[in-house]
């Protein structure tokens, strides 16, 4: 969709969406983004309250301020959506992501991978004589950096969770 204000700045926002955990709810959210041409940088979802069957979707999206407003309004309009919160604007929030990183190699490279993982506080969760799987969590930028460093050392596979986020302070969503 065309931005209403020409040359408006593209912003990156993290939205938290509380939804009923019913069939098709994730498809609704994703279809909304694709149908209206919005971007999804990452999206995570899991049930957060089994007693009342609610799930929390964390979606990182980009767009102009007006597009982000529109995305929030469109999300809020979906019938199974309880609440939409813009963690980038409305709250001071913490964001974390986890990655599993498989690195294969021997000799000096293997030692260097191990040394770097220590600096990044990554944990080794599987190993063979020729490979490691590291578990690392933190801000997405930290994960990016770690993965970049692993590339010349024999990076084989990466699996990332996408961002989860929560507002700081005592209040709930």
């Amino acid at each position: 969709m065309p931005p209403l204000v020409k040359d408006a700045k593209i912003e990156r926002h993290t939205l938290s969406v509380l939804v009923d955990n019913e069939a098709g709810v994730l498809a609704r959210v994703i279809a909304l983004f694709s149908a209206r041409g919005y971007n999804i940088e990452s999206l995570t979802v899991a049930e957060v309250d089994q007693a009342v069957h609610t799930s929390r979707i964390t979606v990182v999206t980009t767009g102009t301020a007006m597009m982000i407003e529109q995305i929030k309004a469109q999300l809020d309009r979906l019938v199974p959506v309880h609440k939409v919160v813009d963690l980038t604007v409305e709250h001071d929030a913490v964001e974390r992501e986890m990655a599993l990183v498989k690195v294969a190699g021997t000799g000096e490279k293997r030692v260097e991978a191990m040394r770097l993982s220590d600096i990044f506080r990554a944990r080794v969760i599987d190993t063979t004589h020729t490979s490691f799987i590291f578990e690392i969590s933190g801000a997405p930028s930290k994960l990016d950096k770690f993965i970049d460093l692993m590339r010349p050392l024999g990076l084989v596979d990466v699996s990332r969770t996408g961002v989860v986020a929560i507002a700081r302070g005592p209040e709930g969503m």
Binding site: P2, L4, M66, Q70, A73, D76, R77
Partner: peptide
């Protein structure tokens, strides 16, 4: 044409659907 739509007016918009507001016109 959107950028020449009623250029000099203040716009009041009543709508039951919040997503209609600021969608095309501020």
């Amino acid at each position: 044409k959107l950028d020449e739509f009623s250029p000099g007016s203040k716009k009041i918009h009543v709508d039951i659907d919040p997503s209609s507001i600021n969608k095309n016109v501020h």
